[in-house]
Design a protein around this nucleic acid. Structure first.
Lengths: 344, 344
DNA sequence: ATGCTGATTTAGATCGATCTAAGTGAGGAG
DNA sequence: CTCCTCACTTAGATCGATCTAAATCAGCAT
C-alpha cells in the first residue's frame, strides 16, 4: 500500500498533461467552456492518477457547502427517523446532502454539535431541539447566519422558522373521539415528558375539549412520564393497583398505548371498560392485539416540509407545500370502534 | 440583519487587537504557548466581533478532519439506528463526530454518498452496504485511502475490516431451541430478503441444524421476502390459506414474527401448534401478545465495536472489545416456553 | 497581410486557516 | 554592561481549490 504517497491534486493532473490548473478545475465542474477533447484527456488522466476532488478546498474558495445538518434528539425513535427521511429526500432532489447528527437528548451535546455545524459552514440546519434547550442556544445558532428550521418546539422571539404538527388539533381530535363517539365520561391523557412541548399542547387542548363536553378529567392518570413502552407499562400497572382506569385514555404515543394496553389486558380490562387511542400510527399498531386506534401525523411529509422551508430560506425555493398536513384519526379496536373493514 | 457583512476572520480579530494571525490561531486551538493575558483579550475580541472558526480552512491546511461518516441503508430500522448510536457514542468520546447518511437501500445513492464522503476527506467511514452493493463500489472506496469498516456483509477479497453478528450461531440457536427444547419435527425459516447476507447465513445454519437433528424443513414457508411487518402478515396469511403452519418457525426479525403471530392468532393457532422465535429482541417483543421469544444481538454494542475497529485503523486505538458479543436467546411465550419469571 | 470574432485556455490573486523558523524582550548570570 | 535563556510572538509560505481578467488561437472577412 503506497500510503505515504502525497495525494494527487489538480496541479498534478494539469502538469502531467501540460495544461493549466484552471482548465482541470473547469473540467471537474463540468463547465461547457472546455473543448470536448481536452475534457476527455483531463478526465482520463485524473482517473489514471487516482485524483479525488477536494471539496474542503473548493468550499473554502466558493464560500458554499451543500451539506445540511439534521440535529435529532433520538434517531432510534421511528418518528424522528421518518422525519429525517422525508427531509433527506427533498434535500437530495435539490443537490444537497443531509447529515444526521444525534444529540441523544443532551443539552451539552446539542450545543457542541451546533458549534461544530457552524464551524463546518453547513448550508443549513434542521433541528428538533432537546427537551431542556435554552432559548439562548437556538438564538446563538440563528445569530451565526446559518439558515435554520426548528421542529416540535417553537422559539417565538428568535424569529426562527418553525414547523410542527397541529398538536392542539390532535388533543381535540382525541378528546372528541373519546367523549362524543364513545361517550366516555371520565378520561385522561397518558404519558409524555412534562417538558415536551407536544405533550403540553396536546394535553391542554384535550383537557379543554373533554371538560367543555362535560366529561371529568382524571388528574392521577394524566401525570406525565417519559414516553418509553416499558415506562408506560410500569406506570399503568402501578396505577391499576390503586383502582380501575378511567373510561377513556388518549396516549402520548403508540408505544405508550402498547404498554398501557398490556397492563389493562393483564388485569382483564377490555376496550369497553377503557377506550384507548394512541398517537403516531406506527405500523405495529394495526397488528397489535387489540389493534390500536391512532392519530397519524405523517412524519415523512413533515420532514419534507421542513426541508422545503429551509431551502426557501437558503434561496433555492422548491415546489410543494410548506405547511404540514393535518393529523388524521384511524379508529381501530382499542377504543372499541371495531371497524368492519380493517386496513390490512 | 447585517447579512452582507463579510464574515469575520482570524485576521480581523488580530488586526483589531494589534497582534498577529498566528497568535489568534494559537489561542483558538488552546495552545499553552500564549500568555494568559493575550489569550483572554483575544477571546474577548473574537467574541465581540462575532468570530466563528472556519473548520474547512483549518482542515485544508492540517489535512485532517474529525468527521466520520456512517452510511446506513435505512435509519427507520431500529436496529440500524441503535448501531449508529453505539458507534456515535465511542466516536464522540475520542473527539470525532458521527454524521449519519442514509442510502435508502439504493445502490446509486450509496455510490454518490461514498464519493461525497471521500471528497469531504472524512476521517473514516462505517457502512452497512445496501443489498445489491457491487464489490467494486466498496473496493473503490477502500482504494481511496479512507479508513473503512463494513457491517452485515463482508467483502472478503477487498481486505476491508468486517464487523458482524455471528449469524451462523443465530441460526443454530434458533434451530436447537425449536427442535431440542420444543421437540418440533417440522420447521421453517420465515422472512428476510433473499439477497441479505444475514438471511443466507442464518437460514443455512438453521436448516443444517434442524436437518441434522432429524426434523424436516418446510421449503414453502421458508421462501424469502422483504422483512416488513405488513409483508410478513400478508405472506403468513396467504400461506395459512393453503394449510396448517409447520410446528416451529424461526423468524428473520421480531417484526416478521409480529406479522406471523397476528396471522396465526386470527386462524386460531397457538404457540402449542406453532412455536415462533424472532430475532432482534425489540422492546415491543416482551409486551406483544403472546410475548415474543427472541434472539438478542445487542446492536448498540455492535456499533461501539465498529467504531473501535475504525479508530484502531485510524490510529487512535480506544480501549474496549473489538469483537461483538455473542447473541443470546430470550425465551418467552410465543414458542411455548411461558417463563414463570417475565423480564418486566 | 491585417483585423476581428468567438471559442478556449491560463497566470496570478484569493479563500482562511496552520506551520516553520526566526524574532523580540524581560530577567538572571557572568 | 553584555550575553544567554526562556517565554512568547510573528512573518511568510502553504494547503488545494476557484475566480477574474487577460492571453491565445483558428477561421474568416477585408
Amino acid at each position: 500500500m503506497i500510503n505515504d504517497a502525497r495525494r494527487v491534486r489538480m496541479l498534478d493532473v494539469a502538469n502531467s498533461l501540460g495544461v493549466s490548473r484552471a482548465t482541470v478545475s473547469l473540467v471537474m465542474r463540468g463547465s461547457p467552456l472546455v473543448s470536448a477533447t481536452t475534457r476527455e484527456s483531463v478526465l482520463a488522466e485524473a482517473d489514471r492518477l487516482g485524483y479525488v476532488y477536494n471539496q474542503a478546498a473548493a468550499s473554502l474558495r466558493t464560500q458554499r457547502n451543500d451539506v445540511v445538518g439534521l440535529v435529532m434528539p433520538d434517531i432510534v425513535n421511528p418518528l424522528v427517523a421518518e422525519i429525517s427521511l422525508g427531509a433527506q429526500e427533498v434535500l437530495n432532489e435539490l443537490g444537497y446532502f443531509a447529515a444526521i447528527v444525534n444529540t441523544a437528548e443532551n443539552v451539552e451535546t446539542q450545543q457542541r454539535l451546533f458549534r461544530t455545524l457552524v464551524q463546518q459552514r453547513v448550508a443549513g440546519v434542521i433541528v428538533i431541539p432537546v427537551l431542556r434547550t435554552a432559548s439562548a442556544d437556538v438564538a446563538e445558532l440563528a445569530r451565526s447566519q446559518v439558515p435554520l428550521v426548528v421542529l416540535t418546539r417553537a422559539f417565538p422571539d428568535s424569529g426562527v422558522p418553525f414547523v410542527g404538527t397541529d398538536d392542539t388539533l390532535i388533543g381535540r381530535m382525541g378528546g372528541e373521539h373519546l367523549v362524543e363517539v364513545h361517550g366516555c365520561r371520565e378520561v385522561a391523557y397518558f404519558g409524555g415528558n412534562a417538558l415536551a412541548t407536544p405533550r403540553v399542547s396536546r394535553e391542554g387542548s384535550f383537557r379543554e375539549t373533554v371538560v367543555a363536553a362535560g366529561a371529568s378529567y382524571d388528574k392521577m392518570w394524566s401525570q406525565p412520564f417519559d414516553a418509553g413502552i416499558v415506562d408506560a407499562y410500569r406506570a399503568a400497572s402501578a396505577l391499576l393497583e390503586k383502582g380501575p382506569p378511567p373510561r377513556g385514555i388518549l396516549c402520548h404515543s403508540d408505544n405508550v398505548a402498547f404498554g398501557l394496553l398490556k397492563a389493562l389486558q393483564l388485569k382483564g380490562y377490555t376496550p369497553q371498560d377503557c377506550a384507548v387511542v394512541g398517537i403516531d400510527d406506527l405500523l405495529q399498531s394495526q397488528l397489535w392485539t387489540p389493534s390500536v386506534s391512532s392519530i397519524a401525523v405523517q412524519p415523512t411529509e413533515i420532514g419534507r416540509v421542513c426541508a422545503r422551508v429551509l431551502l426557501t430560506e437558503i434561496g433555492t425555493p422548491p415546489n410543494g407545500p410548506t405547511t404540514p398536513p393535518p393529523p388524521t384519526l384511524h379508529p381501530r379496536t382499542s377504543c372499541g370502534c371495531n371497524p368492519t373493514n380493517p386496513s390490512l
